[in-house]
Amino acid sequence: MEELTKDWKKLSLSSKEDNKLDLSKNKKAQTYTLAAKIFTRRLVNIEVVAKTFGPLWRTRRKFEVSNAGDNILLFAFESDEDIEKVLMGEPWAFDRHFVVFQRYDMSTPIENLSFNRVSFWIQIHNLPYSLLSSEVASSLGEALGVVTMPKDQTEMRGGNFLRVRVAIDVSEPLCRGRRVKFDENEKGWVSFMYERPPNLCYWCGHLTHDDKDCSLWLRSRGSLSPSDQQFGPWL
């Protein structure tokens, strides 16, 4: 069916097939929509999802949830402000399973959505005191993804570490840190910690599955041990 949809222009259409049917008047009224992918093999109950997120989000107006298949849900809001509130609260999880949200224009085919960007507050540790600045946090954050600077930049200081809000590509393993040069003679390593992460696979560093579903673990047939894990709760 998908191939037919893509290649219909190559077909010789019958008169019935070629007679254009105007669907424009059937479009839904303007809504503000988020598409969400829940990374679990279990089918999710949309009513339970709505009851779970409702008290957490505390939106000003109501929202509706519909099922788009393959554990992809559509959240229709009455105001754009409520969407912003949800996105500012990232990351989110449902029943400990990672949930990735993205704005949805209702015109892109669901199967073309990527679900690969999520914003995290990332802590930056092991910096000398002389480098604890918002400029340093921003520079390191830009190496990870798209940085969002807060209105109050004191949010970027956490005592003896820095914090930065970054939209990262969650199709890749979490970045554990970065080799840096503090000055001409001194090199070192800064460590990253992710605030409020959902399940993290300690074998491969991905957020989209847990240890038991990891291809590295499955291919090993149980021969891997905890000492082989390159990631851990310290992230």
Rank of each mutant, 00 (worst) to 15 (best):
T31F: 09
C204M: 04
T33M: 10
W189E: 13
R221P: 01
R117D: 00
E17H: 03
T208F: 02
V86Q: 07
F161Q: 10
E195H: 00
E135F: 05
K9E: 15
N199V: 07
V180Q: 15
P91G: 09
H125N: 14
M193W: 01
K37T: 03
R221H: 10
K51G: 03
A50T: 13
A35C: 15
V164A: 00
G141I: 00
C204S: 12
W57Q: 05
T33G: 10
L224A: 11
V164R: 00
L73T: 02
E2S: 11
R219N: 09
K28Q: 12
T31G: 02
L87D: 11
L162M: 01
L21C: 03
G232D: 13
V136W: 01
L200I: 08
G159V: 03
I46F: 01
F39T: 06
P128H: 05
P109I: 05
R41G: 06
G188Q: 07
C214V: 12
V180L: 13
E172R: 11
L224S: 06
M88E: 14
N26K: 12
K28V: 05
K85P: 02
V166N: 04
K9Q: 14
K20M: 12
S114K: 15
V100M: 03
H206L: 11
F75W: 11
F94Q: 11
V146Q: 04
L4C: 05
N67V: 09
V65F: 00
L4F: 09
P226S: 14
I72W: 10
K85W: 12
R41D: 02
K85V: 10
V147W: 00
A93Q: 15
P109E: 07
G69L: 03
S24H: 13
V147S: 06
E184R: 10
N26I: 09
N126T: 11
M149N: 01
L207V: 13
G89R: 13
S220F: 00
E184K: 10
L13H: 01
E111V: 08
L43G: 09
S133V: 05
H206K: 07
D228C: 07
R42I: 02
E135C: 04
T208W: 01
S134D: 13
R60V: 14
K62I: 13
D228W: 04
P55G: 09
N126W: 11
L235V: 05
V166W: 01
E81Y: 08
D210E: 04
S227V: 12
L113S: 04
I38W: 03
K9R: 09
S24I: 12
Q153P: 00
L73Y: 11
H125V: 08
R157C: 13
M193N: 06
I46M: 07
K20H: 07
L4G: 11
